[in-house]
Design a protein around this nucleic acid. Structure first.
Length: 439
RNA sequence: GUGGUCGUAGCUCAGCUGGUAGAGCACCGGGUUGUGGUCCCGGGGGUCGCGGGUUCAAGUCCCGUCGAUCACCCCA
């Protein structure tokens, strides 16, 4: 029986997921991010030290645990890859070279109610850069570019990375005289869902805003642009605050850099600002065109204070692809497919059991040259053996030649059958491995 | 964690006001004595998510539970 929130996919889906992982890994490494894997478990107080997300943490307990176990030696499964990474950095600061760029592709766990695209166990592909003291801002501009490269190499709907800066929002709200900036953000973020009037109502009711303040917040939230024009639009609202200016300048850099290097990828969207509560500046959220209602498939941001050792700070910026969510929703709409359900490229037909050794040698010769091959399970009629391949989407069936005659290989899609030698035959590059495609 | 909707064969679903389970597709076999996909014929397969209750009788009504999904919360 399935367990709620812990999805298990079939081999075709897993093949697609592995392709995504391969692509992410290759791209991350192209940008110089070093591989890392951290343990899945952290002391509870490490997980909770920043932010109060306690209810979503899965705790680890032994069946034979002592009765009165203290909460400070409780272990919890990590709910993201950034917090464990921050812990790792502070623990190993002396052995690392800074700025430190690393990627992690691992499962994370959150105890929320599952829905389509929301799981309790899911895979994230995460990159972060941290430095001692201060981290140059240009890394904030790199994050969306890396993600753009990962996603554009896959048959996925077009991705739009929405960027904002918490300094803009906080500076603006503060300049406006509003205290509970976090609550303002939460309300403003619902704009698309509940509409302008309800946002204003809720700001007045839950965030202590006046009608005028609420309207100003709404005006800010409605600003969006693919170029630097958002900054002028914000300034026209007439709110003054040093933090606001700082945020606008940073956001401008992210947007303009992306516009030059990958036009159409990034958009400044001043209503998005959620994500985990340790973000202090740039924040990213990513939607796939046509799948907006499923939320962000790739989020992250800048964190100034997540990691500290003594009075030394390790600020960072990172972004992480929600691989399970992204694939889960695409699978749900049948928007992704794979050319076959197994890796096999060639099935070697087995005329009779006496010839199994011969057929094994044929398959071995193919494998030696990198062609995935298997011998048919039983010496059934050739029609059955072709069906075995066809059902799995395997493109080729290999027929051993009789009594000194040459072998032949048949492309079962076209029916074309030609003489072939297992030590020299090449599969067309497009057929060698399963191919994933969008639809 | 709170609330709503849903849960019949591998898949898509039918099953009226309770009377003891069906179709299409898929699958298996044969027609087709070692080269598939079409066509024809035949066949297997269901503790009606699970557990309890009401009833002479429950797929159908009630309660609980598990799972899916939606909203809230939160977020990948």
């Amino acid at each position: 029986m399935p367990i709620s929130g812990f999805p298990e996919w079939m081999p075709p889906q897993r093949m697609i997921e592995q392709r995504v992982i391969d692509r992410a890994r290759a791209t991350f490494e192209l940008y110089g991010y070093a591989p890392l894997e951290t343990r899945s478990v952290e002391p509870l107080d490490t997980l909770l030290s920043k932010g109060e997300t306690s209810k979503e943490v899965y705790l680890l307990s032994r069946l034979q645990a002592e009765e009165g176990q203290k909460s400070d030696d409780q272990l919890g499964l990590h709910f993201d890859l950034t917090v464990p990474f921050a812990r790792f950095v502070t623990e190993n600061a002396g052995k690392l070279q800074f700025p430190f760029k690393r990627y992690q592709i691992q499962k994370v766990w959150r105890g929320e109610r599952p829905q389509e695209g929301r799981y309790r166990e899911f895979l994230q592909a995460d990159i972060d850069v941290v430095n001692r003291g201060t981290l140059p801002f240009h890394y904030d501009t790199e994050m969306p570019l890396v993600i753009g490269d990962v996603l554009s190499g896959l048959p996925l709907p077009k991705a739009r990375i929405q960027v904002n800066n918490r300094k803009v929002c906080e500076g603006f709200y503060r300049g406006l005289g509003l205290e509970d900036t976090a609550q303002v953000l939460r309300v403003v973020d619902k704009l698309d869902k509940i509409g302008a009037q309800k946002v204003i109502d809720q700001l007045i009711e839950t965030a202590g805003a006046s009608q005028k303040q609420a309207e100003a917040c709404l005006q800010l939230a409605e600003i969006s642009s693919e170029d630097g024009s958002f900054a002028d639009a914000v300034r026209k609202l007439g709110v003054q605050d040093p933090l606001l200016d700082e945020g606008l300048d940073e956001l401008l850099q992210v947007v303009e850099t992306a516009r030059e290097l990958n036009p159409g990828l990034v958009v400044a969207e001043l209503k998005i600002a959620r994500g985990l509560d340790y973000y202090t500046g740039t924040v990213y959220e990513t939607q796939l065109e046509g799948y907006e209602r499923f939320g962000s498939v790739c989020s992250g941001g800048r964190y100034e204070n997540l990691a500290t050792v003594g009075n030394e700070k390790f600020p960072g910026v990172g972004i992480s692809i929600g691989v399970s969510r992204m694939l889960g929703v695409l699978f749900g709409q049948n928007a992704l497919g794979v050319s076959r359900s197994v890796p096999t490229c060639v099935v070697v037909a087995l005329p009779n059991e006496e010839l199994r050794r011969t057929c094994d040698r044929t398959a071995a010769a193919l494998r030696r040259r990198g062609i995935p091959a298997e011998v048919a399970p039983t010496a059934a009629k050739f029609g059955k053996q072709i069906q075995y391949a066809d059902k799995r989407g395997i493109p080729y069936v290999w027929f051993p030649g009789r009594e000194g005659e040459p072998d032949t290989v048949k492309d079962i899609r076209s029916g074309e059958q030609v003489e072939a030698d297992a030590t020299t035959w090449e599969a067309p590059a497009a057929d060698l491995y399963p191919v994933i495609s969008g639809s």
